[in-house]
């Protein structure tokens, strides 16, 4: 009987702890998803539901007018395309250069190895605005001012240090013995990198790619300062330009915000698969 009572009290305690845990998780979810849900709701509210005397939480007449209006604005599709292009190019450049550089620093012992890493990191220590004038002049001199390639190169410069540091960390975690075994089996150094190290570090490479993509997709300062024509501007500039001095079209801004997170969600969905797959491959081989 006493044992039964003990079991019952243990069960009810567990239920209480579960309930508390659910409440905490629910609070965290509300905190994390609240702004997103609010933005999504605002984007489908008519203007009369947005600016009201009393708060209107649920739209009375849901509408897609803000999305249509936004998409019909001149140049918006071009800017969206420009953002997709610069982001993709930045990710490719960063991963291409970063992978080789990080692998070299991780595997080779040479003079100035530590110095190179420090040098790369110092780039991040300066506020971006300080780099604007030299970057502007350099891009002008090589004819890449006001071009998407110039913008992607600039993003690469600023994303490289962090991606290098991250990738080096992931490569360090791959046991060198596996590579040695591959080389004994006849692999070249590059072959070992592509066939052994990169599959094992796939999760890290995917995480780095997500980080670079998010940074490049949302970047505003360089996108505004280093472009001089509508044809080479990117999506974050469109979003910023919606904020007028004396007018603030909340619905349009919310619709723009929703559109801008879609590519990131899609990209993350793909990267997440790679993250999981990379972990599993690593586990089996390890």
């Amino acid at each position: 009987m006493a044992f039964q009572n003990f079991r019952n009290s243990q069960k009810s305690m567990r239920r209480l702890y579960d309930a508390i845990a659910y409440v905490i998780v629910a609070c965290m979810l509300v905190f994390a998803l609240g702004p997103l849900v609010w933005t999504a709701l605002t984007s489908i509210k008519p203007e009369s539901d947005i600016v009201t005397n009393e708060m209107q939480y649920i739209p009375t007449h849901p509408t897609t007018e803000h999305y249509v209006k936004l998409w019909n604005r001149s140049g918006v599709t071009t800017m969206f395309r420009n953002s997709a292009f610069t982001t993709t190019l930045t990710v490719v450049l960063c991963l291409l250069v970063g992978t080789f550089a990080a692998y070299s620093i991780s595997r080779y012992r040479f003079r100035g190895r530590g110095g190179i890493l420090t040098f790369y990191l110092t780039i991040r220590m300066f506020p971006a605005v300080l780099m604007l004038l030299p970057l502007y002049i350099m891009l002008r001199n090589i004819g890449l001012l006001d071009s998407l390639l110039g913008l992607a190169l600039t993003y690469t410069t600023f994303s490289m240090p962090v991606s290098l540091l991250m990738l080096k960390g992931f490569f360090d975690a791959v046991p060198a013995d596996l590579e040695d075994a591959a080389r004994i089996d006849g692999c070249t150094r590059l072959g070992a990198l592509f066939r052994v190290v990169m599959p094992l570090a796939r999760s890290g490479i995917a995480a780095t790619a997500v980080l670079i993509a998010v940074g490049a997709w949302n970047e505003f300062l360089f996108a505004l300062m280093l472009t001089n024509s509508e044809s080479s501007r990117t999506w974050p500039v469109v979003l910023q330009l919606m904020v007028g001095e004396f007018q603030l079209p909340w619905g349009l801004i919310a619709a723009g915000g929703m559109i801008s997170i879609v590519p990131i969600i899609i990209f993350f969905a793909f990267a997440q698969k790679a993250l999981v797959r990379g972990l599993m491959v690593g586990a089996v081989k390890g």
């Binding site: 002008r140 001012l145 505004l224």
Partner: peptide, 15 residues
Amino acid sequence: DFMAKFTLAVQGGSG
């Protein structure tokens, strides 16, 4: 951001 961009264009000598 107007003055920052304008200054950049004038001092950068192009654009």
